[in-house]
């Protein structure tokens, strides 16, 4: 849409001469303002990192390719832990991660290159605690979540909660023990839930571990007395996400607004790490990619992928960066 006028103008350059050049220059500037990159872009866009963000990064890449067909996309989604390794090894300049880099990972990067990686927040996500859709329970405090899922009670709950009768006043249903479902040890979701909901305590042993968030949600949706945790973008009508009580004592539902504002206690940021030497600018493909991410269209893609767009001030602040 933006490049056709330029091409046509270029074709008739001789005829239009000065007027053409002026208009082309003006369009380029307009393009620069809206997109932050020259209007014609080609090259290879590579990224290595989080599998949570795989769908999102791919959608961004496809949107970019729809605009600039000369771009080659190369994405490798093998877990957040693979991003720092690939960045340090120099096999990629972009590393999407569903958690912030640890201090050791950052140090490794600095030792190799002499400057820290550029850290960008590109979207918001949240962990939700889900129960069967007919379950009468509505709200939990974080201490209760800890008492249900952990053995260590690191968040200060007086005792572990094992049975539904401890939680709900209805003695009729659900009954018996709470059947717990969660993610496997290696996933970022598992680690984040451990850090934020269990106060770095230890998980119970009898939590069923599933190889994906969708599997957790499906298992909870099938079972009346089940409870589980999963990524916000995996919610289905089979389950209901519980409201959690924040530090002010208000019960906050995990909806788009509360996650965007960061009020929901288990909301998190999704990151993109960029290998950008100081006082240098990125190749045009990566510049176009970053510009797309922080544009209105890019944030609509975030919503389409099931995550939550960034709040406007954060987006504007980071747009200046690259």
């Amino acid at each position: 849409m933006k490049r056709y006028p330029i091409r046509r103008l270029k074709k008739h350059r001789r005829v239009l001469s000065i007027t053409g050049w002026l208009m082309a220059g003006w369009l380029l500037m307009a393009g620069n303002l809206a997109w932050g990159q020259p209007a014609s872009v080609s090259g290879t866009l590579g990224a290595v990192g989080s599998d949570t963000m795989a769908g999102l990064v791919l959608r961004w890449g496809e949107a970019l390719k729809a605009r600039f067909p000369d771009i080659n996309l190369q994405f490798q989604a093998s877990g957040s832990a693979s991003a720092p390794t690939a960045l340090v090894a120099g096999t990629t300049r972009l590393g999407p991660m569903s958690r912030p880099m640890t201090e050791t990972e950052r140090q490794q990067f600095i030792v190799r290159y002499g400057y820290p990686p550029l850290e960008l927040r590109v979207a918001r996500d949240a962990l939700v605690v889900v129960v069967h859709r007919h379950n009468p329970i509505d709200t939990l405090t974080l201490q209760q979540v800890d008492a249900i899922f952990s053995t260590s009670l690191a968040c200060g709950a007086p005792q572990a909660i094992r049975r539904w009768s401890t939680l709900t006043s209805t003695t009729d249903w659900p009954y018996g023990r709470i059947a717990l479902h969660g993610r496997n040890l290696a996933s970022g979701t598992h680690g984040l839930f451990q850090a934020r909901a269990l106060c770095d305590g230890g998980f119970r042993l009898d939590i069923s571990e599933h190889p994906g968030s969708s599997a957790v949600v499906a298992a909870v949706g099938e079972s009346f007395n089940a409870m589980g945790y999963a990524g916000y973008n995996h919610l289905t009508p089979m389950v209901r996400a519980l409201r959690l009580v924040d530090e002010h004592g208000d019960a906050v539902a995990p909806d788009e607004r509360s996650i965007q504002q960061g009020n929901y206690p288990l909301s998190r940021d999704l990151y993109l790490y960029v290998n950008l030497p100081p006082n240098e600018s990125l190749p045009s493909v990566e510049q176009a990619f970053l510009a797309l991410i922080f544009s209105e269209e890019g944030q609509q893609i975030v919503r389409a992928a099931g995550f939550v767009p960034l709040p406007k001030h954060l987006r504007d602040a980071q747009r200046q960066h690259p």
């Binding site: 009954y175 018996g176 059947a179 009898d206 069923s208 099938e222």
Partner: peptide, 16 residues
């Protein structure tokens, strides 16, 4: 039956 197992014998039933 599941409630009976739970209350009388303390047997937990996991889906899988």
């Amino acid at each position: 039956l599941r409630r009976l197992l739970d209350q009388r014998y303390g047997l937990d039933y996991a889906t899988r």
